[in-house]
Nucleic acid binder design. Sequence first.
DNA 1: TTCACTTCGAGAAAGCATTCACAAGCTCGG
DNA 2: CCGAGCTTGTGAATGCTTTCTCGAAGTGAA
Lengths: 224, 224
Amino acid sequence: MGHNGRRRIPEATVARLPLYYRSLIDCNERDLATVSSDQLAELAGVNAAKVRKDLSYLGSYGTRGVGYDVEYLLHEISRELGLTQDWPCVIVGAGNLGAALANYRGFGARGFRIVGLVDDASDKVGQTVGELTVEPMHTLANMVNERSISIGIIATPASAAQPVADALISAGIRSVLNFAPAVISVPPNVSVRKVDLATELQILSFYQLRGLTSGPALVVDRPA
Amino acid sequence: MGHNGRRRIPEATVARLPLYYRSLIDCNERDLATVSSDQLAELAGVNAAKVRKDLSYLGSYGTRGVGYDVEYLLHEISRELGLTQDWPCVIVGAGNLGAALANYRGFGARGFRIVGLVDDASDKVGQTVGELTVEPMHTLANMVNERSISIGIIATPASAAQPVADALISAGIRSVLNFAPAVISVPPNVSVRKVDLATELQILSFYQLRGLTSGPALVVDRPA
DNA sequence: TTCACTTCGAGAAAGCATTCACAAGCTCGG
DNA sequence: CCGAGCTTGTGAATGCTTTCTCGAAGTGAA
């Protein structure tokens, strides 16, 4: 089993773990007991070599000649991703997007519960969105503390993104998901991930313009 | 000035062009005539060497000792990204997310107009969302044709994503933006980009769990 | 003009990520 | 128990991205 122990997991691999996680849930629902790297690759839309390399960073969880035990691997990946615990989130910005995210059952299901919705527009405060009530911005620090919030989601216009990020960080948040079309700067102990619709559309238009496609086209696993 | 001409632009660079584009718009609004790679780097949240390398793939648009002409560079990047033309989009799925996206002024502004909203739930069809009326799924092919739609946005539950993708593709769409938490497979002449909230949150939780940060953790600016 | 200073462009080096290729390890039929 | 047939795990090879470095080219002052 090689040597394993505490290896550093490459960023690119981390970014794919959620993909494997989802694929394994599929397998589980179909009552598959084991899955090969080939099958998992097809489900996750990557190639088999990558699956094996990625999973090898977690440890030697497969069995040669057989594949990976679905339940076991699922458990290990959950653990690595921290999905065995709860991650309360706050959304800042109760506009279209913020409200849609607050209602969005689909990631709430997986341990990321939205426990607060904040906006500083006085006409929004007090409104209810799903099961949440919009609270004013100045309650943020208390809220983060009392509800043990660990993730902040920015769903404001671009101009508000930086001040909101600063507020989240000074409230103690160290993980931020930014939907605003703006770069935010944060101290080095804070993680930011961004989701930017305009960017994605622009990338699509770049490739469409020249009749090319982005990414490694499709998964057609060819034995050389 | 090197040799330039028609160079292949690396994927990583393409993914950053929208960032530069946005940063340049900022510059323009602040009436800056020129911008250095250092300044642009700060605005875009990357480092200066990367900015220069990236821009050099487009051509030698800078002036040594001065920097880049904001208007000119803006124009060139617009052209590369295809933002000088219109890209009509259709959204499939008029649930929370689909409706929010349909209303989302912010990417509509930049040439990506939503000209169709489709859902096959009979209770959704006929509803109005913003300026759009929800139309039934079977009108998709006609709609794509008549409204010259070039980009399809999938905002359905995971289970519907693949059939919807198939429908979009057989309607002639070659660029797809997928918000559903599912891998979709497409023929090699179609581009897919995905936006997955659950994935992003899981990546954040991975790093938070071990007190690490994702990405180059760059940027210094300090909040309180 | 010359000098001090600035900034780009791009080759070269370094660092990551992906893919290849195959030995090692497992199962199963006989 | 043995050999055939799978499938993993991983070093090595390849390819892509980022970073380093520095010559070339521009500015403005004297």
